[in-house]
């Protein structure tokens, strides 16, 4: 087949071997603590501007509105609505995420007024031509990964835990992610993504964290740099609103056709 197969096999075995040891336990504890600190937010709405840049510095912009509903005992529900580019205005994506089980996703195409269930195994595909894969933007449930604590580290003089996490899903585009979480608030400060061949693929850097309801931290700027193709995608977030009183009935296939 190809010469990467043995390497890919080794990489695939790594998570299998990484079970129960002090480093694994500590990694999982850190991930659980980060998750615990972000539970109870109820629901959020936010606006996002996505700026795509290619190697030559050409830019392309997308405007996206995101509504999220926290679901107890399951993955979150989310509604993603496109405002621009204007040819996809009103296109909306409804996602019921389910931790390890495949997500349910419906796409609404306003020109045809059609709601279409889409395949759920497209984890590693690019989201709207950006450097973010679908799995990078999906609900980050603890059980989606196996963990390992590596060491204490610093990012820009901020004390961090460095943990590695290994995706459980076989459709993931990654073998490994290195995550730096600051010790103060367990916020991600940097994530390095390693591709299926074990090579460094992308670096994610969230900045401009702001706190909401005295508890929840949200980065208002995120940068994803692809080291292999020289492209990057920047997300600029605004209008974060919490506890809007959103309900299950705001995240149905019926409502998907009524958002815009």
């Amino acid at each position: 087949m190809n010469r990467f197969v043995p390497l890919a096999l080794v990489a695939a075995l790594v998570p299998a071997l990484a079970v129960a040891g002090p480093a694994e336990d500590k990694g999982l504890e850190i991930a659980k603590e980060a998750d615990r600190r972000d539970t109870g937010f109820g629901d959020t709405t936010a606006d996002m501007i996505m700026i795509l840049r290619n190697k030559r510095g050409q830019e392309s912009k997308r405007e996206i509105e995101i509504r999220t509903l926290e679901v107890k005992g399951d993955g979150d529900k989310s509604l993603t609505v496109f405002h621009s580019p204007r040819d996809v205005r009103g296109t909306a994506l409804l996602t019921y995420s389910h931790g390890v089980a495949p997500d349910d996703q419906w796409l609404y195409l306003p020109a045809l007024r059609r709601v279409k269930r889409i395949a759920s195994n497209n984890k590693s595909g690019p989201f709207m031509g950006s450097e973010f894969a679908y799995e990078d933007l999906s609900s980050q449930e603890v059980e989606k990964y196996k963990y390992k604590y590596i060491k204490d580290d610093e990012i820009a003089d901020v004390a961090c835990f460095l943990i590695e996490r290994y995706p459980v899903d076989k459709d993931s585009g990654y073998t490994k992610q290195q995550v730096w979480l600051d010790k103060d608030e367990y916020r991600a400060r940097k994530i390095d993504y390693y591709d299926r061949k074990g090579q460094l693929l992308k670096t994610f850097t969230p900045t401009e964290y702001k706190q909401f309801l005295g508890k929840y931290w949200r980065a208002h700027k995120m940068m994803m740099v692809n080291h292999q193709n020289g492209k990057s995608t920047e997300l600029i977030w605004s209008n974060f609103k919490f506890k809007n009183g959103l309900k299950d009935s705001d995240f149905t296939r019926t409502r998907l056709t009524q958002v815009l």
Partner: peptide, 23 residues
């Protein structure tokens, strides 16, 4: 032209300390 809109002053605070360390 840059949105820094926040929900309300009471529920939102910036973490200048952490930002200082970074930038």
């Amino acid at each position: 032209g840059v949105e820094l809109e926040l929900t309300s002053p009471e529920t939102t605070k910036d973490e200048a300390e952490w930002k200082d360390a970074e930038e």
